[in-house]
């Protein structure tokens, strides 16, 4: 199959193309430049694979959590492409894509993204031994000191949340820390890998049903709430 994946939820902007058994990708750490980069990256990948846009069977997107504007950029691009090409969209958690950045096969994975405003987006996983992930809890937004994790023999931590809150997060782990990398981000390559499984399992959406997941849903106070405050 041919699948194009977009991931723009964090500082990294990336696009990947699944072409048969092969996955090729472009990725750049380019805060604030995502909107310029995605379509030219997609063009470069299609040219490299020697296929046209109409050969795509599905579009995949990291649907967040992450920076609101970045998440919406990726989702809107995916929606527009899929509607025009009449193909479905597969949505993938940006935290799950981030978790695949973890190197160790056995240790439990904490994927954690700096959510600003003193909070983190977090979820934990273990590898399923076949290239996929098994979630160990629900993704959520919380203060790092309030993070509660399932029991695990060993932990590895990935994502910008570690760069921001390593000391606090270390104290929240339920087992020894095996490895940590605060300088890695969700990548379209991993969105693509997870999306192929979802697509094959029949979990693809009509483009209009591919929607962002923000986790932080309280973004303003109503007049009634302002009155109480």
């Amino acid at each position: 199959m041919n699948l194009l994946a977009i991931e723009t939820a964090t500082e990294a902007c990336s696009v990947a193309l699944v072409h048969g058994q092969e996955v090729i990708a472009r990725s750049e750490l380019a805060p604030r430049r995502h909107a310029e980069l995605v379509l030219p990256m997609a063009d470069a990948l299609l040219a490299e694979a020697g296929i046209g846009r109409h050969a795509l069977d599905a579009i995949a997107v990291g649907r967040g959590p992450g920076a609101f504007t970045g998440v919406r950029l990726g989702v809107s691009l995916a929606q527009g492409m899929a509607l025009a090409l009449d193909v479905p969209v597969v949505t993938v958690s940006s935290l799950a894509a981030l978790a695949l950045e973890a190197q160790d096969e056995d240790a439990a994975i904490l994927a954690v993204i700096d959510a600003r405003m003193g909070e983190i987006y977090a979820a934990s996983y273990r590898r399923d031994g076949a290239g996929g992930l098994v979630p160990l809890d629900d993704e959520r937004v919380c203060h790092p000191q309030a993070l509660s994790l399932p029991d695990a023999a060993q932990w590895q931590v990935v994502g910008s949340g570690w760069a921001a809150y390593a000391d606090v997060l270390r104290g929240r782990l339920t087992g020894p820390l095996q490895a940590a990398d605060g300088a890695c981000y969700p990548q379209a390559r991993h969105v693509a890998e997870l999306a192929v499984r979802e697509f094959q399992a029949g979990r693809a959406h009509a483009p209009e049903l591919a929607l962002p997941v923000y986790l932080r849903d309280k973004v303003a106070l109503t007049l009634a709430e302002q009155g109480k405050a």
């Binding site: 919406r72 809107s76 691009l77 995916a78 929606q79 527009g80 492409m81 025009a84």
Partner: peptide, 12 residues
């Protein structure tokens, strides 16, 4: 950005 990205992607 929502309208621009969806529109630009459709045209693409």
């Amino acid at each position: 950005l929502v309208g621009a990205s969806a529109a630009r992607a459709m045209a693409w």
